[in-house]
Write a protein that binds this DNA or RNA. Structure first.
Lengths: 166, 166
DNA sequence: TATTGTTATACTCTATAACTATA
DNA sequence: TATAGTTATAGAGTATAACAATA
């Protein structure tokens, strides 16, 4: 498969073996390139965490609770960009598996404070070790300098402060 | 965070993590940063193409057919990383809207060649104009040089040739 | 009245298995 | 036997609306 992308290394994942497909300007689009890269990285993440059956969103919740024990549900879901309605079943599952718990918040009886259980903390330690290997596989491709360059660029794309409309 | 257009098909993603929440190592993860950036860019894409009701995957199909008229369904879906089973309803919808058509392939009666209709070509021209503005909004954030740096890094993350496991 | 967590619902995207008609 | 397109289905992710308890 031939990639028309001047000034870029060529090839995309899962290329048609026999045909030459001109991807045209697609490979030069930020959004298209982001989608392909995210699929590759998330796929590796899922494979890495397969034994523990933890997906990216679940890991992000555990990690936030480790650093911010007692946060309210709404604070966690907002911080992670997950709608609060969708956050409920996600959290139910983590709780069902004994990894997190909801506790009453004295100051506001509507709210629930979230905490890792000891099992959750233990699992997270194991996940972090595997995550290091996952991350290292991609750092091996682009280098430490490349990673920091990438994170800076992605931050600018994500940050609404850079969006005149947003 | 501010809601710009509540009536849109996509609500604005909560792109900015809450300031009081320690995101810890999450923001330093390639996958997490990719997800946030992709959400921001795809959201802008969907807002940009709202009037035409074209989503990223649909645009990518139209663009590939413009450059490669007559490609078979399997070739298009493989090139775009879409499973052939999922490609059927996507294509059905484009066809229902009169934007693409399936034609018999004389050499192989199992296969179907895909083509843009005149309406599809006309729509694509309009989409491309809007896409230019969409892309420019993000280039305005990171610069032309930043864009090419970014595309190169993303390409390396996506490229299975860099993956020792395949 | 507004907010927190919840339920219900729907649509998209993704993934697998199995069918049909061809090859 | 294998392949191209299709159907059916199931699991995630994400979106909105509305409700009960509480502020």
């Amino acid at each position: 498969m031939k990639i028309v992308a001047p000034a870029l290394p060529d090839a995309l994942p899962d290329a048609a073996p026999d045909a030459t497909v001109d991807m045209g300007p697609l490979t030069g689009l930020i959004g298209y390139a982001l989608r392909r890269a995210q699929l590759a990285v998330f796929h590796d993440f899922n494979r890495t965490m397969e034994a523990e059956a933890i997906r990216p969103a679940q890991y992000s919740v555990l990690k936030v609770l480790q650093r911010n024990p007692g946060l309210r549900q709404g604070q966690v879901s907002t911080a992670l960009g997950i709608k609060r309605a969708n956050f409920v079943p996600l959290l139910d599952e983590l709780q069902r598996r004994g990894l997190t718990e909801r506790r009453a918040v004295p100051e506001d009886r509507r709210a629930k404070g979230l905490f890792l259980t000891p099992q959750g903390a233990t699992l997270l330690a194991a996940l972090d070790a595997k995550l290091g290997e996952h991350e290292a596989r991609f750092v091996a491709r682009i280098g430490q300098q490349g990673k920091y360059t990438l994170l800076g660029l992605l931050q600018q794309l994500s940050d609404p402060a850079f969006d005149p409309d947003g």
